[in-house]
């Protein structure tokens, strides 16, 4: 077998371009969020949006939440979203990967959790 299968010039150019795009995007989104969080005052509302099938289902000001609440979306995936003071998360979804649940609590501007099978997005803005 020919083991001398070296990577070629195009490969390296592609890898470098990919690295630049990935790092660039990462720095851009990361710094935008950082500046927004730094510019935020403590009393400012922290709005969480729950969207399903491109429609806004609920908007909650997380700073005004006083007691824990569970929001049942009553859909095919039995999505349950849990809200506490200052934070929100996916508590349950019957999808396969559970990426939405594993994302955990969202408590800062710019964070979001997505359940693609349930076409549901929770974002903090």
């Amino acid at each position: 077998m020919d083991m001398n299968k070296k990577m070629k010039r195009g490969d390296f150019i592609m890898l470098m371009a990919t690295g630049l795009v990935a790092v660039g995007l990462f720095l851009w989104t990361g710094s935008t969020n950082m500046f927004r969080r730094m510019a935020r005052s403590d009393e400012a509302p922290l709005i969480a949006k729950i969207e399903k099938d491109r429609e806004l289902i609920r908007e909650i000001d997380l700073t005004k939440v006083t007691e824990r609440e569970q929001i049942h979306l009553e859909d095919d995936n039995n999505v349950i979203i849990e809200v506490e003071t200052g934070r929100i998360r996916f508590l349950n979804s019957d999808c396969r990967d559970n990426i939405c649940i594993n994302t955990g609590w969202l408590s800062q501007e710019g964070q979001n959790a997505v359940c693609l099978p349930a076409r549901t997005v929770v974002s903090v803005v």
Partner: peptide, 10 residues
């Protein structure tokens, strides 16, 4: 000429 199979796969 410019891409290996690995590169094409990537």
């Amino acid at each position: 000429r410019f891409f290996s199979i690995k590169g094409i796969s990537i």
